[in-house]
Amino acid sequence: MSTTDEIKEELDSLIDDQSKLIELATDTDDTIKFGTKYQAWYSRAIKIVEALAPERLEEFGSYYLIDPKRKVMDVSNYVIQDYIKAIGARKNSYGEELWDCNNLIQIRVVNQVQILASLRSRIDSVLQDVTGHLFADLQDKELEAASKLIKASPRAAGALAGVVLERHLQRTADNHGIKLRKKAPTISDLNDPLKEKSVYGLPVWRKIQFLADIRNLCSHQKENEPTKDQVMELIEGVNGVVKTVF
């Protein structure tokens, strides 16, 4: 199961728990069962919200956490933490509770579940952004390593830069849903379909073909040694492609 599927499964499980939590929040005199179930649920849910929608984390927590600045408890600031601590509603001069704690807590739970439900559509894009940032960071480090490697071995430096380019084009093809016949496509195998699908135009295609030629010189043509200038041009060219082609 992929990471995306695991997160979706966990999110669906949390959403499905709504009915059970609401059912348990019916007896103000027995909040232990609700508290036990809810505390475990909240610990799981807060991680999902933090990962997928940090901008809604404060809102999500406000339905549970007591506001430290609260001076007087009323219907607007009575929260789930109050209920779990068995703190009841304020009473009037006749000893009658001013609000229905059970109903109010059920509403708070529903509000939290609605936030979780709204996040399902964001899973793919959020994970893609995270993966993309990590991938870009890795590419930068590999190209930096290739630049340092030129002094010791231009051939090895060029081969490393070629791997970065090949892997980036593979990821770009995946992002655009381009199916490839070969299980291990080369730069040229990737370059043609990307141009055909209008991911980029002829100038970029020619540039990538040129870079592929230098990469092949580094990786395959043992009779000819690549020059440092050629390898530096390859590294700079790959850096330009990974920054502009997605």
Rank of each mutant, 00 (worst) to 15 (best):
K207V: 01
K141Y: 08
K243C: 07
E225S: 14
G201D: 12
K37P: 06
Y64P: 13
Q170S: 15
V79A: 01
N175I: 04
T172F: 00
L134D: 05
S125V: 14
L52W: 08
Q128L: 14
E96T: 09
K91G: 08
Y83F: 11
T36S: 13
E144C: 06
L160C: 00
N175V: 01
Q112D: 11
V79M: 02
K37G: 04
D82R: 04
T26G: 15
K33N: 15
Y63C: 09
D192S: 10
T227P: 14
H133V: 14
V109G: 02
A212V: 00
I66W: 00
T244W: 04
D100K: 04
I84F: 00
E225V: 13
T244D: 01
P193G: 01
G158H: 08
A146C: 12
S198Y: 09
D124T: 15
Q18P: 05
S188L: 10
P226Y: 03
L98M: 13
L194P: 10
N102V: 06
H176V: 05
L52P: 13
F246K: 11
M73Q: 09
D17I: 10
F246I: 09
N191H: 05
K151Q: 15
T26V: 06
T186R: 09
E196N: 07
W99M: 08
F246Y: 01
R90D: 10
I214N: 00
D229R: 07
I178W: 06
K37L: 13
R171D: 07
Q18M: 08
K151P: 09
L138M: 11
I32V: 13
I87A: 04
V79Q: 03
H168M: 10
Q209L: 05
P68S: 02
L180F: 02
D100C: 06
Y42W: 08
L143T: 12
T31G: 05
E59K: 13
W205Y: 07
